[in-house]
Computed example of a mutant assay.
Amino acid sequence: MARKKATPEGCADPEGCQSDPPPGVTGFSETTSHFVGHRERLRDRFRLGGADAMPDYELLELVLFRAVPRADVKPLAKALVDRFGSFAEVITASPGRLREVKGVGDAIITEFKVIGAAVERVTRERLRARPVLSSWSAVIAHCRASMAYAEQEQFRILFLDKRNQLILDEVQQRGTVDHTPVYPREVVKRALEVAASALILVHNHPSGDPTPSNADIQMTKTIIDVAKPLGIEVHDHIIVGKDGHASLKGLRLI
């Protein structure tokens, strides 16, 4: 005779009140379904008011719902925002740092990385839709989505054709928390390989402050000097950080 599955106290439906978390999620224990009403209320608020009507931790809860179907995730959402500072910084944090927060496993990390990848892809496709120089706000949005909250420096190049349409968006180098080695001749060599007529250089400052350094300025001028005789124009060098962005051309540094 089959043994009847034990039902948590106060729960009429064993499936609806299951306390075991899904694979990849750790640190959760929930024996009642009181959080179900909260989830529906939160979803309704999002439908009516959108993300602007919600603080960062509540928006994060909506993402966590997918990875943690049977637990109250509000404490975890608040803990993540407290730890990293904002919704964007949680989504872009490295898997290693995310795992340091109790309750975060592979399922949650995967959801966060899907969100980050989707944002980057959307902003990149907006760049492809029209000439880059006529959609500067889209350029900045893409650069910030891709790099502003990265924990290490990255050097990215936007390769453009004669009509200033995006040919390729490529991270050429990755470095440390405060330095990325950039080789001007390698930059120009890659531009020739993809038949680019112009470049926009981009890198991030993990410190958050996008102010250009003397090394940033000198490196940009060197790339311009190497590229110009080959008919390749450097439109700008943009530096992004969580505190904003800086344009070397806008600052009249190049």
Rank of each mutant, 00 (worst) to 15 (best):
E58P: 06
E58K: 11
E58S: 04
E58W: 05
E58C: 07
L59I: 12
L59Y: 03
L59A: 12
L60F: 07
E61G: 06
E61A: 11
L62K: 09
L62F: 04
L62D: 07
V63L: 15
L64R: 05
L64Q: 02
L64W: 11
F65P: 00
F65A: 00
F65V: 03
R66I: 04
R66T: 12
R66A: 13
R66K: 15
R66G: 03
A67P: 10
A67T: 07
V68Q: 00
V68N: 00
P69V: 10
P69K: 10
P69T: 11
P69C: 12
R70H: 15
A71R: 08
A71W: 03
A71S: 15
D72S: 08
D72V: 07
D72R: 12
D72L: 04
V73H: 01
V73S: 01
V73C: 08
V73T: 15
K74G: 06
K74L: 15
L76F: 15
L76R: 09
A77I: 08
A77K: 09
A77F: 06
A77V: 06
K78V: 14
K78M: 15
K78Q: 15
K78S: 12
A79T: 14
A79D: 13
L80R: 04
L80H: 09
L80Y: 05
L80V: 13
L80I: 10
V81W: 03
V81Y: 07
V81D: 10
D82H: 12
D82C: 06
D82F: 11
D82Y: 08
D82G: 11
R83A: 12
R83Y: 13
F84V: 12
F84E: 06
G85D: 13
G85S: 13
S86T: 11
S86F: 01
S86C: 07
S86A: 13
F87I: 08
F87G: 04
F87H: 07
A88K: 08
A88C: 01
A88F: 03
A88Q: 13
E89N: 09
V90E: 04
V90K: 04
V90S: 02
V90M: 09
V90A: 03
I91C: 03
I91Y: 00
T92F: 08
T92D: 15
A93W: 06
A93E: 11
A93C: 06
S94T: 15
P95I: 05
P95T: 01
P95A: 04
G96D: 12
R97G: 03
R97L: 13
R97W: 03
R97D: 14
L98D: 05
L98Y: 05
L98Q: 02
R99M: 14
R99H: 11
R99S: 12
E100G: 15
V101I: 15
V101A: 12
V101M: 14
K102H: 08
G103C: 12
G103E: 11
G103W: 12
G103Y: 10
V104M: 01
V104T: 03
G105W: 08
D106R: 14
D106Q: 14
A107P: 01
A107S: 14
A107C: 05
A107V: 01
I108L: 15
I108A: 02
I109H: 09
I109E: 11
